[in-house]
Write a protein that binds this DNA or RNA. Structure first.
Length: 1062
RNA sequence: GGGCGUUUAACUCAGUUGGCUAGAGUGUCUCCCUUACAAGGAGAAAGUCGGGGGUUCGAGUCCCUCAACGCCCA
């Protein structure tokens, strides 16, 4: 059988598109990601990751590609290591974000959410979800993500919904969920509360108005400065800084609020900025020193109100118009004229009123930042409304989140938090990189209760039914429970609903209104409750409640509530037996091994998962490690975003470079810094050329690709940049098409994949199938074989250490160095003359290649899997010290084991000397323009000839040396070049016809200069008594040795130079 | 306003507790289409490690300070 046949079957260049779909098909067919939980009583190592569920709002971007590649590397590594692995895939319903994109789509179609109704809208959104879930999971598969696809979850699916309902019920019962009036970020147009991160800060050119408030005793006035005069109707105090010189005189006095005629106190609070016209801080420049305090309409004022026990008077309706129907009871006749005005109209009218009454002191232009709704783009209104909250400030939640942290990363816990104890999970959560432990920790120090209700339709509807009653018709139990309890404080009571399994609370809304709220557990929970009245199932209970006049809360839960349960809900919690596929998952895979995510959601997500998992699972962590991946910016250090048109689509990169190239490059870029830059270039749609676009600066100061770009080789042809499309400059046409983005950084990964492909082609052509010995004993190895096995041993250790410590770039670099530099450039070249006919060497070659594919697989799964079939087909026999059990699929093959018996520091060191020598010879060859095929003659002293002999042909092969001659007593051949090596002068002859003496002299002079510089450096060090006395003795010894060696090199070069003298 | 990060070759980045002559990839230059790979091979040039100060025998690395850029939170 000819040894060259397999090579001819493999194409010359790696073609990712020809390979990836077939490889993916084989993985899916074999269900490589399928997780098998440990059976009862079974033991073994497990490894699990839950995917940060991508939002179904759109397709995955490059950041997702990075995040998921990093997870897949770990999963594939641990799978090969023999761990039971689970990578749980899924998507997030992303409440407000999804509802917004669907509403936008509806508007474009001419319908509105309110017109179609809740049910139809949810159905429509469900369709959107199906479309994007398919796109997203398709993208993940294209990327090579080896998730357990049969378990794909969705935060709104039945399993997750059960978990959400159960968790809510549990928290409600434990008094960790409550209803309260709070200031929320209110969007008066869409009439919903927004999360803080849904508020966009925008700079607004406005005014600072200076209003006079008369003192109650008529002795004068104070002047308050405000940007929002319309809210003065709700003022309940004026605040002054206690260190203000005017404060003492005003202590205990009151102000008569104009228009409203309300008597309000002057309070002292150090939040108030003191007036200072010379300050560099604009706030101080514009301050009057007196702050009007409106707790119902400003979050800072709310806090002041809490500190000073001030009244909260809400003067606005849900649409932000002035209203006396939402808690404003002391309205005056004068004030009545403003009721019904929009907040903008009211502002003008009130300013006019102050001016007309001679109470407007001054108006100044003032630019400040104002929160706007990211949905309607109007200024948000801090507005008091009824919302549901989770009491995350409770030690059962916050304390658990903080105690989870590794004590060496965060030694001190805040005051009021119990110390770490011996509860499971305490002190066991570790952040990588370490600095993010502080981010997590600091956030919890000032945490507030978590508002979890959202006025949306898309999400988990809050499972609470309520009704309001007059106290007169309330039963005795309820009345007794509320005895002595203030407004808005709920109390749990026992009654028919609780007998049936629900949690029943009452609270006083006003003096003559009581609210009853009933939290209904999911049916799965209800069935298992030990209850007095077990005649109700969940639908029956709901029916009974509604018959009694209860209505379900229309709001849905904040998306993060369901995401916070992700490591539990996806594994079937709380009742896996109801979902047979998930039996055993919690026991085997929770806590998960690591969470990989972005730093922007350490607070929103990481914290909540930790709180929930620990709370519901008796302290058990959601994950043991948290790895925060880098953020990819564009080439100018700007965040990639749709609006700047600078975001790369992973599908484009897979198309131009292949999935392995994408993965390898991303992993190679993953250092432990927080940002990395990815310079983007355009692909000309006319010619396919890649070019750097022409940049322009946007009004906001961003560097973006000009909307219209010119083809680099034919400027008459134009195209549209993604930025041009983003700002709507034009629609792409046939003449002016859209240019796609790419980055030259991915060339690295593509070239590397191709290199591996070709190295394998070479090797396969050299290994004679069926000729390999059963077992190759170490004693038969030639020098390069012993060396490459020793290097494999070193590389494996380095790779394992890198992966296990999340040093992704080290993993990629170690592979790149070993495969390209050692295996390809050195080993394959060195064995070319001997490998044919040497069965033992062929066995080593095949084994090394096999091991290379295994250790490369986690980062470059496609090319390695594609080659695996060929490599495992030819490999026969074993190399002693290497454990490489066979497997049909590489994805399911074992991670290689390289025994320490293959470590060989002596050979590694000898090879380094060989490398040095080869380098010097090659430099001379290049300098003298010696053709690659031409063999040269090396004249060397005995020590060097011994090294060459030890290396058994490696030097000759790599350096193109045909003959090695003794130097002792020999004449220097004419036209020879000199080189220096380890202090000796060596000659190279047989180079070319002629020698250029000038070039030769300048080459030698360069060596002399460099060596002289080094010599003086070493001498300087050794002449310094401080160094000789203080540095480690072995270091000083090493410097002495280097000095001596370098001096010898210098002498040799000088001798050579002298020989060239005319 | 608080916190964090970055600044090393033309570009993108490594450089682990201070210690061998500061590295890699891309790009540039020279040579080579050598039967694995031109997405390749061989060689070369290229750095006052952001500025200033300090600690030390010794600083890219530790400390202080200034500057620029970026991110997160408020």
């Amino acid at each position: 059988m000819s040894s060259n046949e397999p090579a001819t079957e493999i194409p010359k260049a790696y073609d990712p598109h020809g390979v990836e779909p077939e490889v993916t098909r084989r993985w899916l067919e074999a269900k490589i990601g399928a997780a098998t939980p440990l059976a009862n009583g079974e033991t073994g190592d497990t490894y699990s990751i839950v995917i940060p569920p991508p939002n179904i709002t759109g397709a995955l971007h490059l950041g997702h590609a990075l995040n998921n590649t990093l997870q897949d590397v770990l999963i594939r590594y641990h799978r090969m290591k023999g761990d039971r692995t689970l990578w749980m895939p899924g998507t997030d319903h992303a409440g407000i974000a999804t509802q917004t994109v669907v509403e936008k789509r509806l508007l474009a179609e001419g319908t509105r959410r309110l017109d179609m109704g809740r049910e139809a809208f949810v159905e429509r959104t469900q369709q959107w979800k199906s479309d994007y879930e398919a796109i997203i999971t398709g993208q993940l598969r294209e990327l090579g993500a080896s998730c357990d696809w049969d378990r794909t979850r969705f935060t709104l699916d039945e399993m997750c919904a059960t978990a959400v309902r159960h968790a809510f019920y549990h928290l409600f019962k434990d008094n960790l969920v409550y209803r309260g009036k709070r200031l929320v970020n209110w969007d008066p147009v869409t009439q919903t509360a927004l999360a803080d991160d849904e508020v966009e800060m925008e700079n607004v050119d406005g005014h600072m108005w200076y209003l006079r408030y008369p003192l109650a005793d008529g002795s004068g006035h104070v002047t308050v400065a405000t940007t929002r005069p319309e809210t003065m109707l709700g003022d309940t105090a004026v605040a002054v800084n206690p260190t203000d010189p005017r404060a003492a005189a005003l202590r205990g006095r009151h102000v008569r609020l104009p228009i409203v005629d309300r008597l309000i106190p002057i309070v002292e609070d150090d939040y108030v900025v003191m007036a200072d016209p010379d300050s560099s801080d604009a706030k101080a420049q514009f301050a009057s020193g007196f702050l009007k305090v409106t707790p119902a309409h400003d979050p800072n004022d709310w806090d002041i109100g809490v500190r000073h026990d001030l009244a909260v008077i809400n003067v606005m309706a849900a649409d932000a118009s002035i209203s006396d129907q939402h808690g404003w009871e002391d309205i005056s006749d004068e004030a009545r004229q403003f009721v019904g005005m929009s907040r903008e109209e009211a502002r003008e009218a009130i300013v006019a009123w102050f001016e007309a009454n001679d109470l407007l002191e001054e108006v100044r232009d003032y630019s400040h930042s104002v929160g706007h709704s990211y949905r309607s783009h109007v200024p948000i209104e801090p507005w008091q409304s009824d919302q549901w909250f989770v009491a995350v400030t409770d030690d059962r939640l916050r304390g658990n989140a903080l105690r989870a942290q590794d004590a060496s990363q965060v030694p001190e816990l805040p005051e009021g938090v119990n110390a770490r104890g011996d509860q499971q999970g305490d002190g066991e959560m570790v952040f990588h990189p370490e600095r993010y432990a502080r981010t997590y920790h600091a956030w919890h120090a000032n945490i507030r209760d978590w508002c979890i209700s959202r006025q949306l339709w898309w999400g988990h509807q809050i499972p609470v039914w309520s009704r309001r009653l007059h106290p007169d018709i309330l039963d005795a139990v309820a009345l007794a429970a509320l005895d002595g309890v203030g407004l808005d404080e709920a109390r749990q009571i026992e009654g028919v609903w609780s007998a049936a399994g629900a949690v029943h609370t009452v609270r006083r809304i006003t003096d003559d209104e009581i609210e009853e709220a009933v939290c209904v557990p999911p049916d799965a929970t209800l069935r298992r409750l030990d209850r007095v009245d077990a005649s109700f199932d969940e639908p029956g209970l709901v029916k009974a409640l509604e018959a009694a006049g209860f209505e379900r809360d229309p709001d849905v839960l904040d998306t993060w509530f369901s995401s916070g349960l992700w490591p539990l809900s996806t594994m079937g919690w709380p009742y896996p037996e109801d979902f047979p596929d998930s039996i055993g998952l919690l026991e085997s895979f929770n806590p998960t091994s690591v969470l990989i995510t972005g730093r922007d959601i350490i607070t929103l997500w990481v914290s909540r998962m930790t709180m929930f998992n620990r709370y519901f699972m008796d302290g058990q962590l959601a994950f043991e490690d948290v790895f925060i991946n880098t953020l990819i910016q564009d080439g100018h250090g700007q965040r990639m975003s749709k609006s700047l048109g600078n975001g790369l689509d992973p599908r484009d990169v897979i198309h131009t470079h292949g999935a392995d190239a994408l993965r390898f490059t991303l992993v190679q870029m993953s250092t432990d810094t927080q940002d990395v830059r990815m310079p983007v270039e355009l692909i000309c749609p006319h010619t396919g050329e890649v070019f750097a676009p022409e940049w322009i600066t946007t009004p906001a100061g961003h560097l973006v690709a000009a909307p219209i770009q010119h083809s680099p080789s034919d400027p008459s042809k134009t195209m549209l940049s993604p930025y041009g499309v983003a700002i709507g400059a034009a629609e792409p046409t046939d003449d002016v098409p859209l240019a796609r983005l790419t980055s030259p950084k991915f060339d690295l990964g593509r070239n590397f994949a191709n290199k591996v492909w070709n190295a394998t082609r070479f090797a396969l052509g050299r290994v004679e199938v069926g000729q390999l010995p059963e077992v190759v004993d170490e004693t038969v190895h030639l020098f390069p074989d012993r060396w490459i096995l020793a290097r494999l041993h070193e590389t494996l250790a380095r790779v394992e250490d890198a992966i296990e410590n999340y040093h992704y770039n080290v993993y990629a670099d170690a592979l790149y160095d070993f495969i390209w530099r050692d295996v390809c450039d050195r080993y394959l070249e060195a064995i070319k003359p001997t490998v044919d006919g040497n069965a033992a060497q062929q066995a080593v070659l095949a084994a090394v290649l096999d091991a290379v594919l295994r250790i490369l697989h986690p980062v470059a799964p496609f090319v390695t899997e594609a080659l695996w079939t060929n490599v495992s087909a030819v490999r026969r026999g074993e190399v002693e010290g290497l454990e490489l059990p066979s497997s049909d699929l590489l994805a399911l093959a074992a991670w290689p084991v390289v025994n320490d018996s293959l470590a060989d520091p002596g050979v590694v060191e000898a090879f380094e000397r060989v490398d040095q020598l080869v380098g010097s010879i090659r430099a001379v060859r290049s300098e003298r323009n010696v053709k690659p095929k031409q063999q040269v003659i090396l004249h060397a002293p005995i020590t060097v000839r011994e090294l060459i002999a030890t290396a058994s042909g490696t030097v000759e092969t790599l350096a193109g040396v045909g003959e090695v001659l003794e130097m002792e007593g020999a004449e220097r051949p004419a036209a020879a070049s000199s080189l220096t090596f380890e202090g000796s002068e060596l000659w190279l002859s047989g180079l070319a016809e002629e020698i250029d003496l000038d070039a030769e002299r300048s080459r030698l002079q360069k060596i002399i200069d460099a060596k002289s510089k080094q010599v003086s450096g070493f001498e300087g060090k050794l002449g310094n008594p401080g160094y000789v006395n203080n540095a480690k003795p072995e270091l000083v010894e090493e410097t002495r040795r280097l000095l001596a060696a370098t001096k010898e090199d210098l002498t040799a070069a000088e001798t050579a130079m002298a020989a060239l003298a005319p």
